[in-house]
Structures are given as C-alpha cells and as structure tokens.
C-alpha cells in the first residue's frame, strides 16, 4: 500500500518548488504594494509563449532565452506599475480587481489569437528526461530537482536583496507605511515600479521552468494564479520563505490526492487551502 509513497511525496515536494516560484512574485506584489494581481498567472503564460517564440526563431535553449528576456521583463514591470498600477493601488479593491482582471482577459485572448488554443511546451533536450536514482524506490528527475533548487535560490536571492540592500530597505519601508514614506519625502513611485520590475523577473524565470516542465496553452494562467495565491496565503501574506512552504504543501497535497485517484490531484491542493483557511486564517507562517 505504501509502495512508492515516499517517491510520490518527494515528487510532490519538488513540484511544490515550481509552485513557490510562481508564488514568490505574487507574494512580493501583495506584500509590498498590497496588489493582488489577478493577471499574475497570465503573465507567466505570456512569458512562456514569448520564450517559445524566441526559442523557435533562434533555435536556442529556453534558459538562454530566459536570460535574454529578463531585462525587458523588468522594464515591462516597471512600466506597468508606473503607467497603470500606480493609478489603482490604494484603498479601493474594485479597481485593483477589475484592472488586473481586464489584463488577464486581454492576455488570454491575445495569446489565443496569436498562437491558437493548442498546448505548447519548451524543449530543454536531454535535461527533461534525465533522472537520479536515490535508492529506496525514490527516483527524482534532474529537471524537477533543478527547478526546486532554483526556486530556493530565487527566494534566497530576493530575501537577501530585500534585507541587505539599500533599495531593499526602501521597498520594506514603503511596504511598512507608505503614508509615512510620503511624509518624509520618500517617493513610493520608483520603489513600487522597481518592485514590480522584480516581480516580472520572477515571472519570466517561472515562465521558463513551467514551460519546460509542463504543457501550456493560452488559458493556463488562472490555474497558476490560484496555486500561487494559495501558496502565498498559506505561507502567510508577505513572507517569502512562508511562500516556499505554502508551495511545498500544495505540491504534497496534490501528490497525496493523485495517489488516491488521479482526478483528485488538483482538487486536493485547493481543498487543503480551504481547510487551512478554515483552521488558520493567518496562514501557517505569518509575517510577525
């Protein structure tokens, strides 16, 4: 009965790394700008399609393509915040939801018109199929392992940046109290724009790993958003390391659900989230 259970749990944890990667950008925008971006998942999918086009056109590896799009991704985030989100970040939630929801629909349908409804994936060659046998019936794919390690590295880097750099301190300052920042002459605009640029960088990285790991189509965004959202809430709003735990928990829940019956895989993650919410609404690792 427990045949392969350990193996499945390990796969679940590794899958959770990918989810944490989706979620870390959302955690940042929620934590810093209080911006719950409904289009978060759609931006990931947009990134995957962009990488797909670059890889197809230039015949290069998705990882190289990812490096190419990181600077423009930062620029896109910076502009998006400056031109659009800056106008809606504030107390009212309706504009935030409507504007990001509108973006989500625009991206999905734009991709549908440009690429059609068929699923695509990014080709990373032999890396995708390589696996390591750890013994005891546990074998992990090299790529899932790489994804997990990258997610941890990304969170570590962001954490360092936020807590060790001058820009990071400014980001935390406006996140603490944007009114106080304004009173002392600390402009939140550029800081928010920088933070959104970083969010887009995490999205571009997620887009690469997701695209290699799974198929994606123009309608894939919302499910990534929901998973990212669940990881953020379960991990405690605004806590980056909490987000990693949130992602891992969803990965584990899905692995266990899939073991019961494959169609329950996705549902199990959502049910875990609702259960956590009912029992511990502040999340599992709340930011003090």
């Amino acid at each position: 009965m427990f045949d392969g259970l350990l193996n499945q749990l390990v796969q679940g944890v590794l899958q959770g790394g990918l989810y944490a990667m989706f979620a870390v950008g959302l955690s940042l925008s929620v934590g810093v700008m209080r911006l719950v971006n409904i289009a978060h998942g759609d931006f990931i999918v947009l990134g995957s399609f962009t990488l797909y086009s670059i890889c197809t056109a230039l015949g290069i590896s998705p990882f190289l393509a990812m490096l190419i799009i990181l600077p423009p991704a930062f620029g896109l985030g910076y502009l998006l915040q400056t031109l659009l989100f800056q106008r809606i970040v504030g107390k009212d939630i309706l504009p935030v939801i409507l504007v990001t929801f509108g973006l989500s629909i625009i991206i999905q349908n734009g991709l549908l018109m440009g690429y059609g409804p068929n699923p695509r994936d990014l080709n990373a060659g032999a890396l995708e199929t390589a696996s390591l046998n750890l013994g005891g019936g546990v074998a992990v794919g090299v790529f899932p392992l790489l994804t997990f390690v990258s997610a941890v590295a990304l969170i570590f880097a962001l954490d360092r940046f936020l807590y060790r750099s001058r820009t990071g301190a400014k980001i935390r300052a406006v996140s603490d109290d944007v009114e106080a920042a304004r009173l002392i002459g600390l402009s939140s605009r550029k800081i928010y724009a920088t933070a959104m640029g970083l969010v887009m960088v995490t999205i571009a990285i997620s887009a690469c790993f997701m695209g290699v790991r799974t198929n994606f189509n123009p309608a894939s965004g919302p499910s990534q958003l929901l998973i990212a959202f669940e990881a953020v809430v379960m991990g405690g709003l605004g806590s980056l390391w909490g987000t990693l735990w949130g992602g891992i928990l969803i990965g584990l829940a899905q692995a266990i659900g899939a073991r019961i019956a494959l169609p329950w895989e996705v549902l199990s993650g959502h049910l875990l989230f609702l259960a956590v919410l009912a029992l511990r609404p502040q999340g599992l690792m709340p930011k003090e």
Binding site: R87, I88, D92, L94, R182, S187
Partner: peptide, 8 residues
C-alpha cells in the same frame, strides 16, 4: 475613488 493618484 478610483483613478485617484497614489503618488505624492
């Protein structure tokens, strides 16, 4: 209250 500037 949307559209109100968030900036300084």
């Amino acid at each position: 209250r949307a559209g109100r500037e968030q900036g300084e």
